[in-house]
Amino acid sequence: MSEKTYLQAISDGLREEMRRDKRVFVLGEDVGVYGGAFKVTLGFQEEFGPWRVLDMPLSETAIMGGATGAAMMGLRPVAEMQFADFVSCAWDHLVTVAAKQRWRAGTPVPIVLRLPSGGGFSGGPFHSQNPESSFAHIPGLKCVCPATPEDAKGLITAAIEDPNPVLFFEHKHLYRRIKGEVPDERYVTPIGKARIHAEGEDVTVITWGAMVYTAEEAAKAVDASVEIVDLRTIMPWDKQAVLDSARKTSKVLVLHEDTRTGGFGGEIAATIAEEAFEDLDAPVRRLAAPDCPVPFSPVLEKAYIPQVDDVVRALKELIEY
């Protein structure tokens, strides 16, 4: 074990897979000489050469379409969108081609798409979004949202191993702020399994990504035993872990950084209502960003992204219900 940042953990996991498996290659804008906009692939081109670490033209369509073709030919592309927001330019290949090819034509498309996502640093409407729910809605795609360095490494490895297109949402706000112990050896964190970030008895917070830490801070500020479930992957998602925790505490807050309407929290809340109704002692609550684009001004952004105080307020309401 050694202490790593979240970013270093992703980088380590990716590098290790590239060393193990010649089929794995990286493509994206500025991933080579520059090492990626966030330096996740720093030093990769020196080690693996320009044909396994490809600096791409500013062409998300070519990146995603190219990754799709290469995957069909047996390679394991790890494509990077410089920011998750830019995936809109690659939508067609991801959703129209890659997601459906196995189902309709029998051709598996093993791709990892790395998506630096999330706000909290005045990135504005085009550098801060959390578009995971849009893709969780597309059958054939998997969506992974690690919160800890250990999970970041284990899940990037799992994503590369997976025979499907996997969207790897790496939260920019965690890149260098979050450090943690990461096993040095190779390991796989299973896709579709939640992690209990904190055990508790009185109320449950279901969340993922950077909001895990917001929930953690909020839990310290309330006089109750709060269970925090870090979903880790939202497609497939660990329904059992969510229902188990809901049945245990009978009060649930679903928290995410993505906007509220159509956010993945709605699916979670609906599932709890359907399958754990007789275990509920309060309505399932959602706390999410309001239904507007991500603002630039720090003041506005703070009003947009759920803050510790917001979570505390929601928890108190549930506790006192």
Binding site: G120, P290, P298, K302, A303, D310, E317
Partner: peptide
């Protein structure tokens, strides 16, 4: 960038301004 982050770090007036309209349960 400095002021952005400074504002972020500050727990003072700005935070109160930023307080979202409390969304009462």
């Amino acid at each position: 960038p400095a002021t952005q982050e400074a504002a972020d770090e500050s727990e003072a007036a700005a935070a109160e301004v930023a307080e979202p309209p409390a969304q009462p349960a």
